[in-house]
Simulated scan of single mutants.
Amino acid sequence: MMEGLRETLASLTAMDIEGLRAVWRERLGEPPPVRSTDILRRSLAEALQIEAGGQSVALDKRLSRAASQHRTGKKPRLRTSTFQPGSTLIREWQGVRHEVEVRPDGYVWQGQKHASLSKVARLITGVRWNGPRFFGL
């Protein structure tokens, strides 16, 4: 059954809008809800996968909770840093141990003060990083 589904999903990429509409009507028994070829292709692929494997009730509940957090009138909660001035952040990068001291006015790495943790992560790695993510916060 999964092999047949894989083949069907692969065949959707080559279909034009009329072919997609025909598959939608045949498999789902109703007219397609959208006119966009790309959106119809994605919606059809999702519908066929749900048809084959069922829908996850737990996932639906998690998605509903997440969506309710972003409805009009509700402000999203921002995560705040869990480290305080005086803390030392430690990260090993390419075999080198890096220590960053957290201060009220910034971060100190290798004796130099920096305004952001992302700047320190960029200096360590040579590429843009989200500082808290780089240090595992």
Score class of each variant (00 low, 15 high):
Pro132Gly: 07
Phe83Cys: 09
Arg133Phe: 08
Arg27Gly: 04
Arg122Trp: 07
Leu20His: 06
Glu7Gln: 12
Asn130Leu: 04
Thr80Cys: 04
Thr80Phe: 11
Lys119Gln: 15
Ile90Met: 11
Thr72Glu: 12
Leu117Tyr: 01
Gln69Phe: 03
Thr125Trp: 09
Ser81Met: 13
Leu44Cys: 03
Pro104Trp: 02
Leu12Met: 01
Leu44Ile: 09
Gly111Tyr: 11
Ser116Cys: 02
Phe83Arg: 14
Gly95Pro: 07
Ile17Leu: 15
Arg41Trp: 01
Ser68Val: 01
Ala22Ser: 11
Arg103Ala: 13
Leu89Arg: 06
Ala67Asp: 04
Val23Thr: 07
Thr82Ile: 13
Asp60Gln: 15
Pro132Val: 03
Ala58His: 11
Met15Thr: 03
Phe83Ala: 13
Asp38Tyr: 11
Asp38Leu: 12
Leu28Val: 05
Arg21Thr: 04
Arg77Ile: 10
Phe83Lys: 09
Trp109Arg: 02
Ser11Leu: 01
Ala52Gly: 03
Asn130Trp: 01
Ile124Phe: 10
Arg103Glu: 12
Gly19Tyr: 06
Arg77Asp: 03
Ala47Pro: 02
Ser43Ala: 08
Gln55Ile: 12
Glu26Gln: 14
Leu40Lys: 06
Ile50His: 12
Leu78Ile: 10
Arg128Ser: 15
Asp60Arg: 14
Gly106Tyr: 05
Val100Cys: 06
Ile124Gln: 10
Ser11His: 03
Phe134Cys: 10
Trp24Phe: 15
Ser43Phe: 04
Arg41His: 08
Leu137Glu: 05
Phe134Ala: 07
Arg62Cys: 07
Lys119Tyr: 04
Val108Lys: 09
Ile39Cys: 01
Gln94Ser: 14
Thr88His: 08
Leu12Lys: 01
Thr82Tyr: 00
Ile90Cys: 13
Val34Arg: 02
His70Asp: 04
Val34Cys: 00
Glu101Ala: 14
Thr72Phe: 12
Leu63Pro: 03
Gly136Arg: 14
Ser43Trp: 05
Glu92Met: 10
Glu7Val: 05
